[in-house]
Computed example of a mutant assay.
Amino acid sequence: MKNNKLKLYGFNNLTKTLSFNMYDICYAVSDESRRQYIEYIDEQYNAERLTQILRNVSDIIGAHILNVASQDYDPQGASVTILISEEEVNDADVVCHLDKSHLTVHTYPESHPQKGIMTFRADIDVSTCGRISPLNALNYLLDSFDSDIVTLDYRVRGFTRDMNGKKLFIDHRINSIQNYIAPATRNRYDMIDVNVYQENIFHTKMVLHDFDLDNYLFNITKDDLTPRQQQQIRRQVHQEMLEIYNGRNMPSMR
């Protein structure tokens, strides 16, 4: 909401959660290149860097950090969880925030068992209670990962009360997550919405609409490939992107 703040009875009990599934697709031509890609992703998105990203998110949304837990995994992947609060708190206040206000990120690098397709997925949840909004960090997170495919979910749960006791099930205007995405980002993606307005549930899927094969090759360029190889790899990458975007396996592209 803008400057006209709602006068509430007690604490704002609304819980707002913004969830990201971000995907990067890559093609690695050999077993050695696939191994190097996994190592590269593991280094680029290790627990230390992910922790800094979530600390920046906390600053952007105006939250206070209560606790940070991070972990790098073997053979690959990382997770970070940060507990946050709307106001500075003392020890007695921490428990009430554990299930409402948190930032989490988990990474999942993986590869196709038979083809050279590599897929890196990052799952991020920004959950807040009270006045602070996870939507304020939306564009920062999109820019931080610069993904090929993004699935966004935003939900407002619970209710709070005004001074007369009337229940408020949402405290801001929204009809699409797209309204909060920067124009420069919107221009780079094709997007569709699946929203349930009555339940304050908003869902947006995004996929890059420009395709340059060089952006999907690891350790090589398309000039290193024959025209037939380029066509085959382009088809495989498109197939992977379409299946992730549509959320189902699809007939092989010809």
Rank of each mutant, 00 (worst) to 15 (best):
residue 50 L to Q: 03
residue 50 L to E: 01
residue 50 L to C: 02
residue 50 L to H: 04
residue 50 L to W: 05
residue 51 T to G: 00
residue 51 T to Q: 04
residue 51 T to W: 00
residue 51 T to A: 02
residue 52 Q to L: 10
residue 53 I to S: 06
residue 53 I to V: 13
residue 54 L to W: 11
residue 54 L to T: 06
residue 54 L to Y: 11
residue 55 R to Y: 09
residue 55 R to P: 04
residue 55 R to F: 09
residue 55 R to T: 07
residue 55 R to E: 09
residue 56 N to T: 14
residue 56 N to I: 09
residue 58 S to R: 10
residue 58 S to N: 13
residue 58 S to D: 06
residue 59 D to L: 12
residue 59 D to V: 07
residue 59 D to S: 15
residue 60 I to F: 07
residue 61 I to T: 02
residue 61 I to V: 08
residue 62 G to M: 05
residue 62 G to C: 05
residue 63 A to D: 00
residue 64 H to F: 10
residue 64 H to N: 13
residue 64 H to R: 09
residue 65 I to W: 03
residue 65 I to S: 04
residue 66 L to I: 08
residue 66 L to E: 00
residue 66 L to Q: 06
residue 67 N to H: 12
residue 67 N to K: 12
residue 68 V to S: 01
residue 69 A to T: 09
residue 69 A to P: 00
residue 69 A to M: 09
residue 70 S to F: 03
residue 70 S to M: 01
residue 70 S to C: 01
residue 71 Q to I: 08
residue 71 Q to W: 10
residue 73 Y to S: 08
residue 73 Y to D: 07
residue 73 Y to W: 14
residue 73 Y to Q: 09
residue 73 Y to A: 08
residue 74 D to N: 13
residue 74 D to C: 09
residue 74 D to G: 10
residue 74 D to W: 11
residue 75 P to T: 01
residue 75 P to G: 00
residue 76 Q to L: 08
residue 76 Q to R: 12
residue 76 Q to H: 14
residue 76 Q to D: 15
residue 77 G to A: 09
residue 77 G to K: 09
residue 77 G to D: 05
residue 78 A to E: 00
residue 78 A to F: 01
residue 78 A to C: 03
residue 78 A to M: 04
residue 78 A to V: 04
residue 79 S to L: 03
residue 80 V to A: 00
residue 80 V to P: 01
residue 80 V to H: 01
residue 81 T to F: 11
residue 81 T to K: 11
residue 81 T to D: 04
residue 82 I to G: 03
residue 82 I to K: 03
residue 83 L to K: 12
residue 83 L to R: 11
residue 84 I to L: 01
residue 85 S to M: 02
residue 86 E to P: 13
residue 86 E to T: 07
residue 86 E to N: 10
residue 86 E to G: 12
residue 87 E to A: 10
residue 87 E to C: 09
residue 88 E to D: 15
residue 88 E to I: 10
residue 88 E to V: 12
residue 90 N to W: 14
residue 90 N to A: 13
residue 91 D to Q: 07
residue 91 D to H: 07
residue 91 D to W: 07
residue 91 D to Y: 08
residue 92 A to L: 15
residue 92 A to E: 15
residue 92 A to D: 15
residue 93 D to A: 06
residue 93 D to C: 05
residue 93 D to R: 03
residue 93 D to Y: 03
residue 94 V to I: 13
residue 94 V to P: 03
residue 95 V to C: 12
residue 95 V to P: 10
residue 96 C to A: 08
residue 96 C to D: 05
residue 96 C to I: 05
residue 97 H to M: 06
residue 98 L to R: 11
residue 98 L to G: 03
residue 98 L to Q: 10
residue 98 L to P: 05
residue 99 D to A: 12
residue 99 D to S: 13
residue 100 K to M: 09
residue 100 K to Y: 15
residue 100 K to E: 07
residue 102 H to Q: 14
residue 102 H to W: 15
residue 102 H to G: 14
residue 103 L to Y: 00
residue 103 L to A: 00
residue 104 T to N: 03
residue 104 T to K: 00
residue 104 T to Q: 00
